[in-house]
Design a protein around this nucleic acid. Structure first.
Length: 114
DNA sequence: CTAGTGACTGTTT
DNA sequence: AAAACAGCCACTA
């Protein structure tokens, strides 16, 4: 059986796994879906503690503006994130920016029109 | 216990 | 358009 899925980190990981292929979600979005509306920073915190080789699509997590926070934070891993995103069909700007309007993940809510 | 930090977000300059 | 400021709260030391 899985470990503490009720843990904040595990919850965050589970939510990130729900991000569909070719889409990106913001930290706030993940936090909200995980049931922690104001814990956007915790999402980043949890990801920072992520072990190398985890099965979660961490590269699909960007900040609210669509920027790769990883690259902006001066992390070399930002390059890898851009690479992975482009491989999924998500174009990344020269400024490490993604079009949230077109590639932002829109989780299906209550049915409204179909 | 207190203090500092941050892969963030929204508002204001 | 970008930069600065403030709010936010779990985690680490």
């Amino acid at each position: 059986m899985p470990p503490d899925l009720t843990s904040t980190h595990s919850r965050i990981y589970a939510t990130i796994r729900r991000i569909p292929y070719g889409k990106v979600a913001s930290y706030g979005q993940i936090a909200r879906l995980a049931g922690m509306p104001r814990h956007a920073r915790l999402v980043g915190y949890a990801l920072h503690r992520l072990p190398n080789g985890s099965s979660i699509p961490w590269h699909r997590v960007v900040n609210a503006r669509g920027d790769l926070s990883l690259a902006h934070a001066g992390r070399a891993s930002g390059i890898e994130q851009r690479l992975r995103l482009e491989r999924e069909g998500v174009p990344v700007n020269a400024a490490f920016r993604v079009s949230m309007a077109r590639f932002g993940w829109r989780p299906a809510r209550a049915k409204r029109r179909a």
